[in-house]
Amino acid sequence: MNAQIQKLYSKAAKPERLIIGLMSGTSMDGLDIALCSVSESGADTNIQILKFKTGEYTDDFRAKIKAVFSKKEVDLQLVCLMNEHIANTHAILINETLAEWDIKNESVDFIASHGQTIFHAPKSLHQLADYPNGTLQIGDGDHIAIKTGIITLSDFRQKHLAAGGEGAPLAVYGDYLMFSKAGEDRVMLNIGGIANFTYLPGNMDAGAVFSTDVGPGNTLMDQYMQKHFNQFYDKNAAVALRGELNPQLLSALLDCGFFGLDFPKTTGPELFNLEYLTEAQETSSTTNISKENVMATLCHFSAETIANAIKRCFGVDAHAQVFMSGGGMHNPLLVTLLQKKLPFCNFLTTDDLNINPDAKEAVLFAVLANETLCGKPINFGDRKGVPSVCMGKISLPE
């Protein structure tokens, strides 16, 4: 047997595995690095976050990602180069972080890398009859494995596509394993660039679990802040709180076929971008309203789409335990609006479930890697969008 395969086998067979989960989302605020201790698999999975850090991106690196991000037409040479550049940068951040934590690379068993999404193209968005669902994450796993010396699992979304899914959202798998509780219906709401949630029924029936994107979380607000205020995001909703809701603009923003599609569904900045906002402003004759009013309305837009989706699942008087994660949970206006729109829901964060909400997405990929290494596909039933598969390609460091 190849020595590297033997090493993979031996590490997968350990009773407790140290796995680094990595996440770099559409917000591009940095690389989330979560060092996790994982034992067992499936419904018996036991995971503990040992260390967590967000490795900061430089403005130059972030600009380079944006040059290839969510564009139908892009320099193909640049995409090719960024596949390697992102992986090399992530490897450097991992090595620096492990040194900072005084942890030797060889003591880590696996890395689970999401990569950087640069384009998401489900059929519902591209509308091209001859083509399948598509998505592309770059940041090559082989480069990370070689430069860290750690076996790396990456490119998780392609198996989901191959098995009939849309490549997203993948939270359904990790949420079910980490957060299901008998006797309690839960909603795991992640408000990243795009907002999505997972429904976890209290009867523990995996066949009833589903995860879906619902619309924009932070992406439109972040894009608008970057263009008009030269700020990466609206910290503490300072700008939005100075503005007022414009009902005409909100109505135009909500006028989109995506919101009428059945669950589960996926979307991204390929749809919800500044061009989308401009069209809505022109349609509603609101091109001259103040930038603060635009930001306030965009925040209401995100809250409205999230609340409408939860009501669609649980009724107008929705009663649910809603556990939040993602950057949007730090937006006080957005959270207040959600509480007003869903008065019978109880809003908490995954901190209440002993998982740092800022680390949750990175931890998810550590869980997915653990299932690929040590588990087996969970039977989610024969349902569209939730294929019962294990995910991730394996890269060996030698």
Rank of each mutant, 00 (worst) to 15 (best):
residue 23 M to D: 03
residue 282 E to N: 08
residue 113 S to P: 07
residue 146 I to E: 12
residue 136 L to F: 10
residue 143 H to K: 14
residue 200 L to D: 02
residue 215 G to P: 03
residue 184 E to D: 13
residue 3 A to C: 06
residue 275 E to W: 01
residue 104 K to R: 11
residue 277 L to P: 03
residue 215 G to K: 01
residue 22 L to I: 07
residue 220 L to E: 07
residue 252 A to M: 08
residue 152 T to L: 02
residue 67 A to S: 15
residue 39 S to Q: 09
residue 335 V to M: 15
residue 153 L to D: 05
residue 319 H to W: 00
residue 61 F to N: 11
residue 110 F to A: 11
residue 173 Y to W: 00
residue 134 G to H: 05
residue 206 A to N: 03
residue 278 T to E: 14
residue 186 R to T: 11
residue 42 G to T: 01
residue 298 L to V: 08
residue 232 F to L: 15
residue 332 P to F: 09
residue 362 A to T: 09
residue 40 E to T: 00
residue 89 T to C: 10
residue 329 M to D: 02
residue 214 V to D: 02
residue 343 P to Q: 14
residue 98 L to T: 09
residue 218 N to E: 03
residue 227 K to M: 13
residue 349 T to H: 10
residue 234 D to V: 10
residue 336 T to E: 15
residue 307 A to N: 09
residue 43 A to S: 02
residue 39 S to F: 01
residue 366 A to E: 11
residue 340 K to H: 15
residue 29 D to E: 06
residue 135 T to C: 07
residue 288 N to W: 00
residue 219 T to E: 00
residue 211 S to P: 04
residue 328 G to F: 04
residue 174 G to A: 10
residue 283 T to D: 06
residue 99 A to Q: 15
residue 114 H to I: 12
residue 17 R to V: 03
residue 92 I to C: 11
residue 76 L to C: 08
residue 322 V to M: 06
residue 167 G to C: 04
residue 164 G to F: 07
residue 370 N to R: 11
residue 299 C to K: 02
residue 211 S to L: 03
residue 89 T to M: 13
residue 351 D to H: 13
residue 75 D to L: 08
residue 56 E to P: 01
residue 176 Y to L: 00
residue 142 D to S: 14
residue 354 N to W: 00
residue 157 R to T: 00
residue 105 N to G: 12
residue 57 Y to R: 05
residue 389 V to P: 02
residue 318 A to D: 12
residue 260 G to D: 15
residue 130 D to C: 02
residue 388 S to E: 05
residue 270 E to T: 12
residue 129 A to K: 12
residue 28 M to P: 01
residue 112 A to G: 13
residue 9 Y to D: 13
residue 27 S to V: 07
residue 220 L to S: 07
residue 132 P to I: 08
residue 340 K to F: 10
residue 377 P to W: 07
residue 366 A to L: 13
residue 365 F to C: 13
residue 143 H to I: 15
residue 210 F to V: 01
residue 29 D to L: 08
residue 369 A to G: 11
residue 235 K to T: 15
residue 246 N to D: 15
residue 268 G to V: 09
residue 327 G to I: 00
residue 293 N to W: 03
residue 185 D to A: 09
residue 148 T to M: 04
residue 3 A to K: 13
residue 353 L to A: 12
residue 1 M to F: 12
residue 373 L to A: 05
residue 79 V to N: 04
residue 9 Y to F: 07
residue 359 A to M: 13
residue 354 N to Q: 14
residue 218 N to P: 04
residue 273 N to R: 12
residue 30 G to M: 04
residue 350 T to M: 09
residue 126 H to N: 09
residue 311 K to Q: 15
residue 356 N to M: 12
residue 81 L to E: 11
residue 363 V to P: 04
residue 396 L to Q: 01
residue 188 M to C: 13
residue 220 L to I: 13
residue 130 D to W: 00
residue 89 T to K: 14
